[in-house]
Design a protein around this nucleic acid. Structure first.
Lengths: 152, 152
DNA sequence: GTCGGTATTGCGACGCCTTGCAACAACAGC
DNA sequence: GCTGTTGTTGCAAGGCGTCGCAATACCGAC
């Protein structure tokens, strides 16, 4: 019995987008898409590999990372680097955004375009430099860690 | 014959600073310091390991990285992460500064406190977040790459 | 000068991610 | 439905960086 017309998801377009570019729709890619569709927010590459392995134990890291590259080209994900330099992927970013990372407690927050807008404009005007916002990670210390440290 | 009193270097203080903290001055650390003193600017961890190996083939990566941690605690170097997430060390930073990295051509520039000042203040006021400037790497596209791309 | 406590080293193993390559399989055309 | 092309996969190996552990050697004390 054919599934009823379910809630349409942006991911549904992936197979055709791939084929339109002469690329192929494979079970391995399907696995990764299902994992990505089932979660949201930020994940490291290793976490993604692990979740794919949970869904399909034959998953290979290299395939996951290569598929992530493809999905990034298609705009479905973006990657940046966390405070430790490890890759971090953002699923379906509504708008480009950077990240704020507390080096003490490890929490992180999104950094909206409005907050970095001044810097982005200044760099564009002053240096002709075009900032890739999704790749911006600002490291430092968050409010609660800073106050905890000044009053131990 | 004892060396004449040479040009004094900030590195000369390292042995005593270490001992003052109950740490030790070892030949391996000496090798790394000599390498660092002989260059300047930005280097990746791997480059540093390689240069140490050139000076002393018995050099071990783990020792180099651990010594770099110590030197960072002492303030002689700072590390950040380049566009690809790899570690990058800055020798003797005069002032805290961030980095601007062109993802297309790979060049990078220093980002002065004045340029990021607005963002730093906004984050402090708005979120109580204290930015670690030396850890900031802004990725994007530089002027020449951007214009080369728009007019191929 | 020697001795002992302990910081440091070197090793081996691991984790994350990338790359080259041969074998495989998706898919367009018949 | 079969077939050939060629994009993908899985493997193996490698690079960068970290960590635990036993052996080493620095350095302060005697």
């Amino acid at each position: 019995m054919p599934a009823a017309i379910g809630p349409s998801s942006p991911w549904d377009a992936v197979p055709d987008l791939l084929r339109a570019r002469g690329m192929r729709w494979t079970p391995q890619r399907r696995t990764l898409i299902e994992v990505l569709a089932g979660i949201g927010g930020h994940l490291t590459g290793a976490e993604l590999v692990e979740r794919c392995r949970a869904a399909d134990p034959t998953t290979t890291p290299s395939t996951v990372y290569r598929t992530l590259d493809v999905l990034e080209e298609l705009g479905f994900i973006r990657h940046g680097h966390g405070a430790d330099g490890r890759e971090e992927f953002h699923v379906l970013p509504r708008t480009a955004h950077g990240h704020l990372h507390c080096g003490t407690c490890g929490s992180s927050w999104e950094l909206g375009a409005s907050e970095v807008g001044g810097l982005v404009r200044a760099l564009r005007r002053g240096r002709g430099f075009h900032v890739d916002l999704s790749h911006v990670t600002i490291v430092g210390q968050c409010e609660s860690c800073a106050s905890a440290e000044s009053r131990p």
